[in-house]
Amino acid sequence: MLDLSNFDLSSIPVKDSMIDAEIVAHVQLQNPLEHALLVLTKTGYNAVPVLDLESKFCGIISKSNIVEEMFGIEQIEVSRLHEKKVEDVMESDVPTITEQDSLEKALHILINYSFVCVVDEEEKMQGIYTRREILKQIRNEFYRQQSK
């Protein structure tokens, strides 16, 4: 049986296993929704961070945000994707963490999100921390215990 009583998530900093911002797919505030949908489709992600021109984190855009915007009163209006910008439909009230925060704090956020953005004191995105990463940490602890 897995015993996590000695596995202290509050002592492990996020920066040890976050994904660096340089390799994270994202879109910018002023991008048209059609560009955001293309990025999401080509990467296979359901959501990506939204940044401004100075790499400041502004929110998250998801496929659902975009698809919902396409629905007109009587039909799907794909032309609206060219007219609307990412900033018009993105979620802006999204929690973030810092590199110094613990995995425990990330875990609480990852209950409702598939990833959380890691930002610095100026809100510039440093990377992301994903559910996958926290599950890998728990798996590694499990294997460590098994080898004892």
Rank of each mutant, 00 (worst) to 15 (best):
residue 91 E to H: 06
residue 60 I to V: 13
residue 72 G to P: 03
residue 60 I to L: 00
residue 104 E to D: 11
residue 65 N to P: 10
residue 87 E to Y: 05
residue 68 E to Y: 12
residue 87 E to L: 10
residue 102 S to P: 06
residue 96 T to E: 04
residue 66 I to P: 02
residue 101 D to T: 04
residue 64 S to D: 11
residue 61 I to W: 01
residue 64 S to H: 13
residue 71 F to S: 14
residue 96 T to N: 05
residue 82 H to Q: 09
residue 60 I to S: 01
residue 91 E to D: 10
residue 59 G to A: 01
residue 74 E to K: 11
residue 69 E to D: 08
residue 100 Q to M: 14
residue 70 M to H: 10
residue 72 G to F: 05
residue 79 S to T: 13
residue 101 D to Q: 06
residue 67 V to M: 05
residue 67 V to W: 03
residue 92 S to A: 12
residue 73 I to P: 03
residue 104 E to A: 08
residue 94 V to N: 00
residue 98 T to K: 12
residue 75 Q to Y: 09
residue 56 K to T: 11
residue 71 F to C: 08
residue 67 V to D: 00
residue 100 Q to I: 12
residue 94 V to I: 13
residue 91 E to P: 01
residue 61 I to V: 15
residue 82 H to L: 11
residue 57 F to A: 05
residue 63 K to N: 05
residue 90 M to N: 01
residue 84 K to T: 01
residue 68 E to F: 12
residue 66 I to T: 09
residue 57 F to G: 06
residue 105 K to Q: 06
residue 62 S to K: 07
residue 59 G to P: 04
residue 65 N to Y: 09
residue 99 E to V: 14
residue 59 G to N: 02
residue 69 E to C: 15
residue 78 V to W: 09
residue 106 A to C: 09
residue 69 E to Y: 06
residue 101 D to P: 02
residue 99 E to P: 03
residue 71 F to M: 15
residue 89 V to E: 09
residue 79 S to N: 14
residue 89 V to Q: 13
residue 81 L to G: 00
residue 69 E to G: 12
residue 65 N to V: 11
residue 95 P to G: 02
residue 98 T to F: 07
residue 68 E to N: 12
residue 80 R to I: 07
residue 58 C to W: 08
residue 71 F to Y: 14
residue 96 T to D: 00
residue 90 M to C: 09
residue 82 H to Y: 13
residue 62 S to W: 08
residue 85 K to W: 04
residue 104 E to H: 09
residue 91 E to S: 14
residue 81 L to E: 02
residue 64 S to Y: 09
residue 66 I to H: 02
residue 88 D to T: 10
residue 58 C to K: 15
residue 87 E to M: 13
residue 68 E to L: 06
residue 66 I to C: 01
residue 67 V to R: 04
residue 71 F to H: 09
residue 106 A to F: 08
residue 90 M to I: 06
residue 62 S to R: 10
residue 96 T to P: 05
residue 88 D to R: 10
residue 78 V to S: 11
residue 83 E to P: 08
residue 100 Q to G: 11
residue 59 G to Y: 03
residue 83 E to L: 13
residue 75 Q to K: 13
residue 81 L to Q: 01
residue 102 S to F: 04
residue 87 E to R: 13
residue 102 S to L: 07
residue 98 T to S: 13
residue 106 A to W: 04
residue 75 Q to R: 10
residue 85 K to S: 11
residue 101 D to G: 04
residue 83 E to C: 08
residue 79 S to Y: 12
residue 99 E to T: 13
residue 77 E to T: 15
residue 69 E to S: 15
residue 70 M to Q: 12
residue 73 I to T: 04
residue 107 L to A: 15
residue 82 H to I: 11
residue 102 S to V: 11
residue 82 H to F: 15
residue 84 K to L: 07
residue 67 V to N: 04
residue 86 V to E: 02
residue 72 G to A: 04
residue 94 V to A: 00
residue 91 E to T: 10
residue 66 I to F: 02
residue 64 S to G: 00
residue 91 E to W: 03
residue 63 K to L: 08
residue 78 V to I: 14
residue 66 I to M: 07
residue 82 H to N: 07
residue 90 M to S: 06
residue 70 M to P: 06
residue 90 M to G: 08
